[in-house]
């Protein structure tokens, strides 16, 4: 029994606890107790879905990356908006992108980033985690899109997860 009284994922527990304080109206004794219980029991029950603890080695680089992505999201939305309103037909294209990242968490972060930024949606990852299928809304040239993603998003992620 006692060996269950531990926090297998301390960061997840901390996030859950803080989130619960935000969700309940104001911090009180009750919300702290319930928050502690949730922070203990949710990581324990979802343990099977977390194969390896993710290795985020250079965590201090995340804010810069997040800011860049946020800015790119705004730019991307303006681009997509302009394309939707212009009368010409878009030139869609499927692109196979060879991944350099190995970590599954890093790959999913990259895929989400691609979906939210300029004219691309990541459609699928191949089973062996080496290829990413990307749909570009309006692409001139395959290589250009690949280079943009490689330099702008994958390089910082490689630095963070290596």
């Amino acid at each position: 029994m006692l060996d269950r009284l531990r926090f297998p994922h301390p960061w997840l527990s901390l996030t859950l606890f803080v989130m619960w304080q935000f969700l309940s109206d104001g911090i009180s004794g009750g919300s702290i107790v319930l928050g502690l219980i949730l922070a203990w029991i949710i990581p324990l029950m979802t343990q099977g879905f977390w194969p390896d603890p993710p290795t985020l080695l250079k965590a201090w680089k995340t804010p810069a990356y997040l800011l860049r992505v946020l800015w790119d999201i705004v730019v991307a939305s303006v681009d997509v908006a302009r394309l939707i309103l212009s009368p010409r037909e878009p030139r869609p294209m499927f692109i196979c992108y060879t991944l350099e990242l190995k970590d599954p968490l890093a790959i999913s972060i990259l895929a989400s980033t691609i979906s939210l930024t300029p004219g691309t949606v990541s459609a699928d990852v191949s089973d062996d985690n080496t290829l990413l299928l990307i749909h570009a809304l309006d692409a001139e040239d395959e290589q250009e899109v690949i280079d943009t993603i490689r330099n702008r998003y994958e390089k910082p992620l490689l630095e963070m997860f290596q």
Partner: peptide
């Protein structure tokens, strides 16, 4: 948003949804 987009794209590829003629490249 990106996660649901990804799921929908996977479902669409499985159902082999029609793509416009101008699309270059292949789905899998």
């Amino acid at each position: 948003a990106p996660i649901s987009a990804n799921f929908l794209a996977k479902a669409a590829m499985h159902l082999e949804v029609r793509t416009s003629e101008k699309t270059r490249g292949q789905t899998w």
